[in-house]
Design a protein around this nucleic acid. Structure first.
Lengths: 218, 218
DNA sequence: ATAAAATATTAAGCTTACTTAATTTTGTAT
DNA sequence: ATACAAAATTAAGTAAGCTTAATATTTTAT
């Protein structure tokens, strides 16, 4: 698979997994910064390869094989992002573009090495789930707000809701971010705030903050 | 620069740095697995870009700019090889092919991160010198055999001479390999063997073994 | 010195992944 | 129902990086 094909499949996958994600040619074109004509060309080609379902003038969709391929690229992308950020200390703003290129040029073997090195992470640094080798991903839709977590059980943070920079600073300060383990130690009913354990520290979180943290049972 | 151009310049550089390295079109073609015609095409193109010196039917050479470019790719290749082996635990046999692809697709920024992560290494896992950001490299020709090292001074292993597998096993066992720091603690004149310090251990090396280790002063 | 071998070049053509411009189809608003 | 806008398609063309086959030049061996 070429990088172009990879990106094409990945883009269709990502669009169709957005809310109201309708995969139109113009949308693909604008995401990939190519012309609509190029999209038609590629779509026809990938249809003959059995990777996309295509009827002229109709919506474009992935076949099962196509989706598997797309998930493989998404997996590669998210593992690279996490690795670049976590291991090599690259800034969150830098990792996307870098991963965008590396995802096409690492062998399966290297991707496995990275996954192992990172101890089989389930979420990338943006909180997006990382598909496993079989394309399975921990659904964010199974996630709950930390405020609803069962006390004393181990959770993993999936993502943190879009936030103002001051709120962002609090999370950064306590190193509260996707992938981290977290446990509710105590609930304070009088103001619905929580005492949580994370990074071997106990921290008090207001109700507002606790609602911003999405997590899944470990 | 495209990957094709990168590889072309790198190949010329590597050939011309071999013993009796005469850069002929057929040699380039066979190293890159492309036709001789493709080599002529590329050579003409790169000549107009000022990267190679070209006179039809004559030997091909790099301009100063071309050599700088080549050194940049060599640097990337060797840093990747070391990183894949050292950090991600990939086998020495696997790292070349992997680095061969990654070298073209990492940003300068990522390469710097990797270099920093590895603490500015001077040799790759095969013992080849890694060009620094300015294209300077620690010359192997400045290297001496460990047997000739001044006692109590700090040396860095550059490379280890081609060896039988049993000898290889000894070096592997004591983790004696390129990039490692080593110091001669004592010389035994009666059999020209050495006691050396490496990896916080003192080890006895026969004269035969000590002659296989090439090193430079730190 | 010259023929044969080795090497390099030229010419023509291919594939991939695009482009723009013109045309067709579809969806929508009245 | 129909006109129009939006979207998709087709047609023709481009650049990079190759290929093979034919041709030219250089090197080597006698």
């Amino acid at each position: 698979m070429s990088a172009s094909v990879d990106n094409f499949l990945k883009t269709i996958y990502l669009i169709s997994n957005e809310v109201q994600g309708v995969v139109t040619g113009t949308l693909i074109a604008s995401r990939l910064n190519i012309s609509a004509a190029a999209v038609t060309d590629m779509t026809r080609k990938l249809a003959t390869r059995g990777l996309v379902n295509y009827t002229p003038y109709r919506e474009i969709g992935l076949t099962t094989t196509g989706e598997q391929q797309a998930l493989k690229i998404v997996r590669r992308h998210r593992l690279w992002e996490l690795f670049l950020h976590e291991t090599l200390g690259m800034d969150l703003k830098e990792v996307h573009d870098e991963a965008e290129r590396l995802e096409h040029h690492a062998s399966d073997r290297l991707i496995d090495c990275i996954e192992q090195f990172l101890a089989h992470p389930r979420f990338d640094p943006h909180g997006e789930p990382i598909p496993d080798k079989n394309g399975m991903l921990t659904q964010i839709k199974d996630a709950i707000e930390l405020i609803d977590a069962t006390p004393d059980e181990d959770y993993i943070i999936c993502s943190i809701r879009i936030q103002k920079s001051e709120v962002f600073d609090i999370f950064t300060h306590y190193d509260i971010r996707p992938g981290k383990h977290i446990k509710v130690v105590r609930r304070f009913d009088f103001d619905n705030s929580l005492e949580v354990q994370i990074n071997n520290q106990n921290i008090l979180l207001s109700n507002t903050l606790a609602c911003k943290i999405l997590c899944t049972k470990n």
